[in-house]
Structure formats: C-alpha cells, structure tokens
C-alpha cells in the first residue's frame, strides 16, 4: 500500500486514473446529498432546457434534471459494476482454485464449461442471459458476471498449477498441509495483486457492457436512470440541438471505463511487470 502511494507521486497515468475514478465515486456517494434535485420529478414546462446554473447538465424531454439523473445513474452503474466484479471474482476465482487443486474430472468438466462460455463474444453472452432471465438489471448483471467468470477461472487455475509445482508448496503438501491451509497461506498471498489487477479490468468491462445492455434495452427498466439507457433516451434529440441528453451519461461511462483500465494497466506494470501482454478486454 505504501508502495502504491509512493508510486502515485511520480506516475501521472496512475494518478490520472485514480483522480478520475475518485471523482465519479465521490459524485455517486455524496452527489445526491449535495445536489438535491429529484431525478424522477417530471416538469414538462421546463423540458429540454440547455445547461445553466439551475440545471448544470440541462433537463431532459420531460423536464427531469439531467445532473440528478446522472448522479443516480452513477450510483446504479457503480453499484452494479462493483457487485458484478465481486461476484465474478468470487465465483470464477473459487472455481479456478478448486479446478487447480482438485484436478481430475472436476477440472475437465469446469474447463469445458468455461470454453463454452468463451465461445461467445462477451457482449452477446450477456445479452443471451439478460434475455433468458427476463429483462432487468439483475439479469443484465448476471449476464456480465457469467461473461467475466472464465477470466478469473483461467487466471486462478493457472496460478494454482504454477504455484503447486514450486517446491515450497509441494513440500507443504508433503508435510500434510490441508488444501484450505495451502490456499490461505501459500496461494492467496501470491495471487492477491493479480486478482486485484484483473478485477480493475473487469470493472471497466462491466461498466461498458452494462451500458451497452442498457442501450439495447436490456438494462434497468425506466424510469430509474442508468447511463446506457439515458443515451438511448437522448438519441431522439441528439440532432436537434439538445446534445446534453446523451452527452453527459456517455461521458460518465467513458471516464469510469478509462480510469479503471488505466489503474489496471499501471498496477500490472508495478506488480507484475512481465505480463504486459496479458490483456483481458
């Protein structure tokens, strides 16, 4: 951790990523408290107002405040993306650990399932799940989780296999250490940074994919604001001069995805300089 903070001081790319990411996080956490407009309040008389002091991001076609909707959208997007990342890490990581430790038929079966998942383009897979489970943010989230699981699975499985062949783990096993002890004492400490780096990448992927699902109509259902859906809603007004409807939510997605990727890439260089080529998205 101390190494990270020291790194921040002279690594402007990491700094940029952290600052941008922090900005959206602060907005999501404190924005609703600072900006007390109701994101759902319709005000037809004040529809399609351009940005000004009263509405820094303007109002939409039914007069709702775009900034308030942007903040609520940030909460929704970040909340879902964080849940998705954590769930993906836990499920994919656990399966990978088990496949690496147990091996045998379990490894074969799970690996085959992962291959099947990887046979779909990630966006298409998320779409399939979102449709199969019925429209809604939960289905969309599960779709993204499913698409993210194989990355963690492969990562953890290969790490376990690599570490198992190292002498010290082998001798620990010869001494009768239980698998659980083995994971806790030898494997997890070695892989934490790798998992964290992967998680930052997956977070960026989740933000983009959730927004894409929202854009094609498979995300959260109206009237709850979500950035991808907001862009769809802004489509109709994009070419009649009301650019702010679609512009700001897209900017939010863009900033979050870029900063997450920047952080992931810098961390990879700092902790794992040899795997520069291992990109996941």
């Amino acid at each position: 951790m101390r190494r990270l903070i020291a790194q921040l001081a002279h690594d402007w790319e990491l700094l940029l990523g952290v600052v941008l990411f922090g900005l959206i996080v602060l907005l999501a956490v404190f924005g609703g408290w600072l900006w007390r407009e109701d994101p759902l309040r319709v005000d037809i008389l004040n529809s399609l107002l351009p940005p000004d002091l009263a509405h820094p991001m303007g109002t939409d076609d039914v007069g709702r405040d775009v900034l308030a909707r942007f903040i609520r959208g940030a909460q929704v997007s970040m909340g879902v993306a964080i849940s998705v990342t954590i769930a993906g890490t836990l499920i994919g990581g656990t399966l990978g650990l088990l496949a690496g430790l147990i091996g045998g038929w379990f490894d074969v079966v799970v690996s085959r399932i992962m291959d099947a998942i990887l046979a779909f383009p990630p966006l298409i897979l998320a779409m399939a799940v979102a449709i199969g489970l019925g429209q809604g943010i939960v289905s969309a989230g599960i779709g993204v989780i499913l698409a993210a699981i194989p990355w963690y699975f492969r990562l953890l499985r290969s790490e376990v296999l690599r570490l198992r062949t190292l002498m010290y783990v082998e001798s620990a096993q010869a001494l009768g250490a239980s698998s659980f002890r083995l994971i806790r004492l030898h494997i997890l400490p070695q892989t934490t940074s790798t998992i964290f780096i992967q998680a930052s990448s997956v977070f960026g992927f989740s933000i983009l994919t959730l927004a894409a699902l929202g854009f094609v109509g498979l995300g959260i259902q109206p009237p709850t604001p979500e950035w991808g859906t907001m862009i769809t809603e802004g489509l109709a007004y994009a070419l009649t001069g009301q650019w702010w409807l679609g512009f700001f939510p897209g900017l939010g997605i863009f900033i979050l995805a870029v900063s997450a990727n920047l952080i992931a890439d810098r961390l990879r260089d700092i902790y794992d300089p040899k795997s520069g080529a291992r990109l996941s998205i």
């Binding site: 790319e13 960026g204 983009l208 927004a211 894409a212 854009f215 991808g228 862009i231 802004g234 489509l235 994009a238 070419l239 650019w243 679609g246 512009f247 939510p249 897209g250 997605i253 863009f254 995805a257 870029v258 900063s259 997450a260 990727n261 920047l262 890439d265 998205i281």
Partner: peptide, 26 residues
C-alpha cells in the same frame, strides 16, 4: 499512443457514434 489506446478502449461505441453524428454531420 498509450493514452490514445486507453481512450479508445474506454469509449462506449454507441456514444462515440452519437458524438460523431453531432459533430461531423450536424
């Protein structure tokens, strides 16, 4: 180039399409 690659990877394509239309068409 590195920065450009980060920007490219993080930009939602449908938003970019919208921006393109607003700038290069409208």
């Amino acid at each position: 180039l590195r920065l450009l690659s980060f920007i490219s990877v993080g930009v939602p394509p449908f938003w970019l399409a919208l921006l393109f239309l607003m700038v290069f068409f409208e």
